[in-house]
Design a protein around this nucleic acid. Structure first.
Lengths: 157, 157
DNA sequence: AGTGAAACGACCGTAGA
DNA sequence: TCTACGGTCGTTTCACT
């Protein structure tokens, strides 16, 4: 029941939401410490986290700041295509400088976020590798000037 | 020295990269287990992780799947403005349905990613709350049809 | 799904190089 | 910035509900 709810995204209970919230604040917080906050034993918290991860609702991962790692150029690239969109999305997804690919409805067929070391690397990526993908007919690039908000707290708020 | 390198994003050493890689695979992996892989003691790994987090290079957090949590509508919204961009970015950042705000150079001044439960919630957000922000003159919405790639592995690849 | 208890392993502070 | 070490706390397993 709760399994089903978690798998289908409906009505995750308050305790699991509270657990997710704790791990959004600090992914290494101990199960025991979380248990004290949410009112559950350590083992119960661990089992719930396990279920949340196994069912694909949540994962605990390291996220890094591209700027701090020397990736000074970021941009969103809007892509217009002919024909099927999935093969183009797949080709974009294979490029290591692209961390995000989504098929959209709107004046672009796909959006891809790119992370590069330099303008030259960005130019090479967009001009040669992206625009040479079969089916791509046009791209438009939105250079990032300043990232203002980035939160991973979906569904808890 | 290495501190400075980490803070400025230049030449994070191979060991720290390996530690980040381990934590990208599993943010809860123990320091001791990471130490075995990267060839360092538990305490050394702990100290390096601490430094990476303190310096803002990395954080370990829970990330959730909006679809699994019942947020069925996602979109990227391109925003055109008059005047200063920062106040508009700030206003967008305050909206809880918006998880990502970036100031860009291109045919939009800002891009914002929105996560909503339903079409009605999305309409209310865009039509009333976003478009009523002072300085916003136009928006364009790209509804997400399918998320194809999302990676947090910047800088390790 | 949850608790409690005991053995084990991880974490943390500190000292020393 | 690393290792070594001891005390404390967290995790794991299991029996039980």
């Amino acid at each position: 029941m709760t399994r089903k709810q978690e798998r289908t995204g409906l009505n995750l209970d308050e305790v699991s939401k509270a657990i997710i919230e704790q791990l959004q604040q600090d992914g290494r917080r101990s199960y025991a410490a979380i248990g004290k906050v949410v009112g559950l034993s350590e083992a119960a918290v661990r089992q719930r986290v396990q279920r949340l991860v196994d069912s694909g609702v949540m994962q605990v991962v390291a996220v890094t700041d591209p700027l701090e790692l020397g990736f000074a150029r970021q941009a969103m690239v809007g892509v217009r295509c002919t024909g099927q969109l999935e093969p183009v999305a797949d080709a974009l997804a294979e490029l290591e400088e692209i961390d995000y690919v989504v098929i959209t409805a709107g004046s672009y067929d796909l959006l891809a976020e790119v992370v590069c070391e330099s303008d030259e690397a960005l130019l090479d990526l967009i001009s040669h590798r992206i625009r040479n993908i079969p089916g791509v007919v046009a791209t438009e690039t939105f250079m990032y000037l300043k990232l203002r908000k980035q939160t991973y707290s979906w569904g808890v708020r």
